[in-house]
């Protein structure tokens, strides 16, 4: 059984069908790249996996994590729990402007820690102390994560004081802080100057090369990156998976006509 199993996923916006039934699986530690022209449904697929959009049909199953059936109703709390198994890095960073880089990473962690501690300690001094300890721990963890993405000297900076590449690295650290089982990237370098894409891609690559390689899904236009970093590549067009395989298969010998045309346009 695969680590992540997506079956028959369909999504409509009003009368427009955006995903017509998407099936794929991936294993733990794999890096999956999703490519394809705009409007093909890549971003919608990613948003369905993070429950920012609710799929109309199909299932999403994570081994040891959750099983989502589109036909079932979920409470906001249940969705929140499933969502935390996934992480998402946005194209436009979406850092919180009123917080420093460190706070951006630390605050979401601490909120979850507080929630857990509130359940554990009903009230009183013990809870305050536990929350205080969590604060120290999470702060240290946030610092460590920021150092890992190369921003040890920018922790006190506000987002507007950071370059696009630096902001995206903070966003990656922030997503990592929630310890997701799968980390998703939605065109993480599309909003960046070409000069800055390298630093972000390097960080993503380092996550794969780390000791316990991260499981990642990357929607990207960087074909070279997809070719060299991904273990598996999916080409999407018109709401379906047209081509799926190793980078060698997809880039070297695509079976689908659409995929060939697309790759020709991208000049790989």
């Amino acid at each position: 059984m695969a680590f992540l199993e997506v079956t028959g996923l369909k999504k409509r916006f009003g009368n427009t069908s955006v995903l017509h039934g998407v099936d794929f699986t991936m294993e733990k530690g794999e890096v999956l790249a999703i490519i394809g022209s705009s409007g093909g449904g890549k971003t919608t697929l990613l948003r369905c996996l993070n429950f920012l959009e609710m799929a109309n049909e199909g299932t999403i199953r994570m081994e040891g994590g959750f099983t989502f059936h589109a036909a079932k109703q979920y409470t906001p709390a249940e969705i929140r729990e499933m969502r935390l198994k996934m992480g998402l890095v946005f194209q436009s960073f979406n850092l919180f402007p009123q917080y420093t880089a460190l706070e951006n990473v630390y605050i979401p962690m601490q909120l979850r820690a507080k929630e857990a501690l509130r359940a554990e300690y009903p009230f009183g001094h013990a809870r305050r102390e536990a929350i205080g300890n969590a604060k120290v721990r999470n702060m240290a963890q946030a610092e460590k994560l920021l150092a890992e993405v190369g921003l040890a000297d920018k922790m006190g900076n506000y987002p507007y004081q950071l370059s696009g590449g630096q902001q995206q690295r903070v966003a990656i650290a922030r997503a990592l802080a929630m310890q997701p089982d799968i980390l998703c990237f939605d065109e993480p370098t599309s909003a960046l100057d070409p000069a800055l894409t390298g630093e972000v891609l390097r960080v993503i690559r380092s996550l794969k090369d780390a000791e316990n390689g991260r499981t990642m899904i990357v929607v990207t236009h960087e074909m070279e990156f997809a070719a060299h970093v991904a273990d598996k590549v999916i080409f999407m067009a018109d709401g379906v998976i047209e081509e799926m395989g190793t980078p060698e298969e997809v880039f070297g010998n695509p079976k689908s006509e659409k995929c060939r045309a697309f790759l020709h346009g991208e000049k790989v």
């Binding site: 920012l52 996934m86 979406n94 919180f96 009123q98 909120l111 922030r174 929630m178």
Partner: peptide
């Protein structure tokens, strides 16, 4: 921006947490 709400969502914040930790001070400003 919608992205602020979505970022808060994927970080597992509740609606109340989102309003008070993310949205409020931006609205105030």
């Amino acid at each position: 921006p919608k992205g602020q709400y979505e970022a808060a969502e994927v970080l597992g914040m509740t609606a109340v947490e989102t309003f008070f930790t993310v949205i409020l001070m931006q609205v105030v400003k």
